[in-house]
Simulated assay, not measured.
Amino acid sequence: MTVETPRIGIVGIHGHGASHVRRALALEERGVARLVAVADPTPPAPGALPAHVVHDDDAEGMLARGIVDVAIISTPIHTHAAIAAAALDAGCDVLLEKPPTATLDEFHALEVHAAARGARAQVGFQSLGSEAVPYVRGLVADGAIGEVLRYGATGAWVRDDRYYARAAWAGRRRMGGVVVADGALTNPLAHASATALALAGMQRADDVDGIALDLFHANDIEADDTSVARFALRDGRTLTTAVTLCAAQREEPWVEVVGAHGTVRLYYTLDVVQLVRGDGRPPVTRAFGRAPLLENLLDARAGRAPLAVPLAETGAFMRLVDAVMAAPEPRAIPAEHWTEAVDDAGRHRVVRGVEAALHDALRTQRTFTELGAPFIC
């Protein structure tokens, strides 16, 4: 190790934060970076971290030590803005989990803050580090599917009762008057919209002219678990996202670009692209690699690469978060339209016919209400 080796601090080391700890330690083994500090009200298990890693109960204590160059923030959504601003004030570059903030006002304030500090702020949309994203953009630009007609994104996932019991903020829109925004569109399936916006090249806040929303929940939560968002994009095209956490079983989420002569579909958790042409030729499927966002941030610090997911390029997604929170409260799906399943995925609610409704929403660019989906009647 040399004095130039970036020193990493992680705020939030349990849950998803544990994956950041593992990655930082792997980089330390390679001599690329050094994990020096963590912050979490729940300490690490004895022996879980090397002896040189210091622990503080909160970000304030960790940052006050002045030993961190890169701060990873993996905490509840409503805490992101304040912790990220404090890390920037402490002279750190930041890897901030998605969504970057809970509100659009916080997002714009954080943009100004980062620019004033001359700091790098990377947002943790892992799918945007995939080599598949520029590949799909290239296919579309080269005319492989003809004129682009529309964009779509969908995910049909299962979330059991333990998921909503994992934290006080889980499944909440607000808590104690503070925006939490823990709904299907804005947190677990946030990558769907963010990846589709990236394929469309519409990632900044002013790339979105408006968003129509249809928000529902089958679970006993405040936030949405079954929803449609229809983006009106600056170029006149439409992007429709249709998602649920109440599927019978998990399906791989995907985003697509539909053209006059074919469709390109990206299974974004797998980094797999499928090209289907309208002339009857067999589909072409390719798998791609992915640049981990922490490594990319370190490369950007060293001048070897641009940031994969700079803060400014998540503004269009933040328009979605803002619209969701400005919308009326999600409507409850009547009990006669869902069942409670107990299987390998745990105890979870299944909305009857939701998978077909998701596909219909994408195909027609209509919301569940506009479709007259049976489960909302």
Rank of each mutant, 00 (worst) to 15 (best):
E147K: 12
G177K: 01
A198P: 04
N219A: 09
G152M: 08
A141L: 12
V158R: 07
Y135H: 15
W157P: 06
V208C: 03
V178G: 00
I211V: 03
G118N: 01
V179D: 04
W169L: 12
G210L: 10
A196V: 05
G183A: 02
A192S: 15
A132P: 11
R159K: 15
D214H: 01
L185W: 07
G183D: 05
W169R: 04
Q126A: 14
N187Y: 14
R172C: 13
D206T: 02
G146V: 06
V179F: 00
G155N: 15
P134Q: 13
M202Y: 07
V123P: 02
I221S: 09
L197I: 06
G138E: 13
N187E: 13
A229D: 08
H217Q: 09
G118W: 08
L149I: 13
T226D: 12
V179C: 09
N187D: 15
D220A: 08
D206W: 13
D142F: 11
W157F: 15
G155W: 15
M175T: 02
H191M: 10
Y135W: 13
H191A: 05
R173G: 11
L139N: 10
A196G: 13
H113G: 01
A121T: 12
V228H: 06
A229F: 00
D206F: 06
Q122W: 00
Y163E: 14
L197G: 06
V178Q: 08
A223V: 00
A218I: 02
T186C: 06
N187P: 07
F125R: 01
A190T: 02
L185H: 05
S130F: 02
R173V: 00
A119S: 03
D224F: 05
R173F: 00
A229S: 08
S130D: 10
V123C: 03
T154V: 13
A115C: 14
A121F: 09
T186Q: 03
R137F: 02
D161Q: 06
A116W: 07
S130Y: 05
L185P: 00
Y151K: 12
A194Y: 03
R162W: 07
G210M: 11
A114S: 03
T186L: 03
L149G: 09
G155E: 15
V228M: 06
V133N: 08
R117F: 03
M175N: 02
L213M: 12
T154D: 12
G155V: 13
A141W: 12
